[in-house]
């Protein structure tokens, strides 16, 4: 812990990068067990990030899927989006996704399962926009492969046997009145349901998206915090 605060103090000096930070950068996200997420949604996830090899289903909010990709891609992880031809990528960039490390396969057609399998080999995160197009046996094989390779599968829609389920319940927009203003932020309620220890569902309030600056992640929180969680 003393080390952590010391490294934070060092990191706050700006130009200085500590050996620990370099090591963290190398381990995370390339080999770290937990991929980091934006600070404002990290609290929502049981491990404070996306556990490698896990499958996460998101219901009802594309913004939430994009937000889950943001921090990891910004830190050098690679992501692919399959079967989501209508995503607005300007919004993805606004939410912090590094578009230069995002591959998009809008129309995988009948090859969906093979495409996902190929992507799992090379990507850190794979988003499946049309999971309903997969049958149960293919789903099992794809999940096993993702677990083996340490790739996070993000399904936008129902997916059997997920490790974590995030369900958008309701949202409330702010910033606009009767003919004036514009959309500034949305408060939404998300139901989080995990497996095993986290099986009891809980409701979380999240502000997403927002024009207000997102609090910067504390350098140490996403990396070693997540790893601590993974061991627990």
């Amino acid at each position: 812990m003393r080390d952590a605060t010391a490294s934070q103090r060092l990191a706050s000096l700006g130009e200085v990068s500590t050996a620990g930070e370099l090591a963290a950068a190398r381990e995370d996200p390339a080999t770290g067990r937990v991929l980091p997420v934006r600070a404002d949604i990290a609290d929502m996830l049981p491990l404070g990030g996306l556990s490698r090899g896990s499958t996460v289903a998101v219901h009802g909010s594309v913004a939430l899927v994009m937000a889950l990709l943001a921090e990891a891609t910004a830190r050098g992880a690679w992501a692919a989006v399959v079967g989501a031809p209508d995503w607005g990528f300007v919004a993805a960039a606004e939410l912090g996704v590094a578009l230069e490390r995002l591959a998009v396969i809008p129309a995988p057609g009948e090859h969906l399962a093979s495409v996902i399998a190929a992507l799992i080999d090379g990507m850190d995160l794979v988003v499946v926009g049309n999971p309903e197009a997969l049958d149960a046996s293919r789903v099992r094989r794809v999940m096993a492969r993702a677990r083996q390779r340490g790739t996070v599968l993000l399904s936008h829609g129902a997916w059997p046997k997920v490790d974590l389920e995030l369900r958008y319940l309701s949202g409330r927009w702010h910033g606009m009145g009767a003919g004036h203003g514009y959309l500034r932020r949305r408060d939404m309620v998300v139901e989080v349901r995990g497996r095993g220890a986290a099986a009891r569902s809980r409701r979380v309030r999240v502000v997403l998206p927002t024009l207000d600056p997102v609090p910067a992640p504390i350098p140490d929180a996403a990396g070693s915090g997540g790893a601590r969680g993974a061991r627990a």
Binding site: V104, G109, A118, L119
Partner: peptide
């Protein structure tokens, strides 16, 4: 991995967004 997907679906099937 992406070259592999291009092999499955064709060269134009894999894209990346630009703003």
């Amino acid at each position: 991995a992406l070259v592999h997907v291009q092999g499955l679906l064709g060269f134009d099937a894999v894209c990346t967004p630009v703003i």
